[in-house]
């Protein structure tokens, strides 16, 4: 699965203002609502569900990356967005490091395979140092979208 298959272009944020876990989850979920990828009425429920998932264990998987996510019946296909925090913020990561890169995913309850394939794509690309570094240095949503497109074209990993 490619980034273009699930990332909502209009919801990408290059300059996250949030400084803690609840607010970054809210900021990115609101971005998805503003882009029309999720319903505005569903936003609160989705934020709550994502926070509940974080209580089981942080989705900050290391290398300055987090993949907050949930299943939600209001979406009929996997939707997601990407956010970059220049400063980074404390996300209770597994490695204790601050998180700068966020991939927020919302999937329909009956499509676990799609969720896995999105995680596969994200983690495979993130193993490449160049991709990680460029993403952290992105200044605009256009920069990020371009990088994701290059990753989709296998320009970082073979």
């Amino acid at each position: 699965m490619k980034f273009a298959d699930f990332v909502s272009e209009g919801a990408i944020r290059a300059d996250l203002s949030a400084t803690d876990k609840p607010s970054v989850i809210r900021e990115l979920t609101a971005a998805l609502a503003a882009a029309g990828a999720i319903g505005a009425d569903d936003m609160e429920g989705i934020v709550k569900a994502i926070m509940k998932r974080e209580e089981l264990g942080s989705t900050g998987i290391g290398r300055g990356v987090a993949v907050p996510h949930t299943k939600h019946p209001s979406v009929d296909r996997l939707v997601g967005t990407v956010g970059v925090s220049a400063e980074g913020l404390d996300f209770n990561s597994l490695d204790g490091e601050k998180v700068q890169l966020f991939f927020l995913l919302i999937s329909p309850p009956d499509r676990p395979g799609d969720h896995l394939r999105a995680l596969e794509n994200i983690s495979r690309q993130l193993r490449d140092d160049t991709f990680c570094r460029f993403l952290k240095q992105s200044k605009t949503p256009e920069d990020i979208w371009q990088l994701l497109a290059e990753a989709d074209n296998n320009q970082f990993v073979s």
Binding site: I61, G62, R63, L94, P112, G113, L116, R117, L119, E120, I122, S123, R124, L126, R127
Partner: peptide, 12 residues
């Protein structure tokens, strides 16, 4: 490595 394990996309 959690990143490595995730790249397997191991489904049911």
């Amino acid at each position: 490595s959690i990143l490595d394990v995730l790249t397997l996309a191991a489904t049911q």
